[in-house]
Amino acid sequence: MLDILLARWQQGHRTISFPKGQPAVPDRFRGVPVVDQSKCPVGCRDCVVACPTDAITIDARGLRLDLGRCLFCTDCVEACPEQAIRYTQDFRLAARKREDLVLNGESLKLAEALDKKMRRLFGRSLKLRQVSAGGCNGCEADVNVLSTVVFDLGRFGIQMVASPRHADGLLITGPVTENMRLALKKAYDAVPAPKVVIAVGACAIAGGPYINHPEQHNGADSVVPVDLYIPGCPPHPLTILDGLLRLLGRLEVGRPRA
């Protein structure tokens, strides 16, 4: 018993102050990418060719980067002859609409809160059923980590529950494999309305590295309507938490509430 108390003393208090304080991310962390199109040589398509998921397109309107498809890898950065692409350390990536994730020079339109009625229902208590539909256990692991003492999801009234019937919504990972499609649909149907759906990770948004494989369906919104998209491969736990809090109106658009 004494050992347990001593260990408790040693372990200390570990819950981060986010969203009140801004947490530090590692210096090499790859958050929101920015492209300086003024550096792009005329006709250069090196980044388009290098991108493993065709997240970058160039046409007459310029270069567009789809954060929903982005794996946050370094292939485009390395391919660029002019160092026009760089990752910032901004971990805030979640958006309400799929098209908001496609950047064309402008800054990312972060997720807006649910409407008033939904916020009244879920703002202080949101129960989610997680469904992995082909996820590699990367997104799953970083969703799981939100329940540890570090992020302590419970303090926001958000909880992962065992049954869709006890849930207010689904948190989906994976590209939705053909073999999970029916199970996902059934889980969605089992959640009582009104409900929210959150797609976490490049796979659940657009298929990730598996995009256009016939064995999968290019993401959750092929099967169910999605209310929140959280990009990343996998998204950092802070990115997921930030997205959830924005959806519930617990953060102001753009910056955390003081």
């Binding site: 493993p52 890898c73 996820g135 997104c139 199970a183 590295p209 494989h213």
Partner: peptide, 30 residues
């Protein structure tokens, strides 16, 4: 099992290509 089948081995044939390393990194994400 089989619910997670994403067709990795089929997609690796004809490679290596720009996706290959990303398949490898997500074969089992942990």
């Amino acid at each position: 099992l089989g619910y997670q089948h994403r067709g990795v081995e089929r997609a690796l044939v004809g490679g290596p290509d720009k996706r290959t390393i990303h398949y490898m990194e997500t074969l089992a994400g942990d």
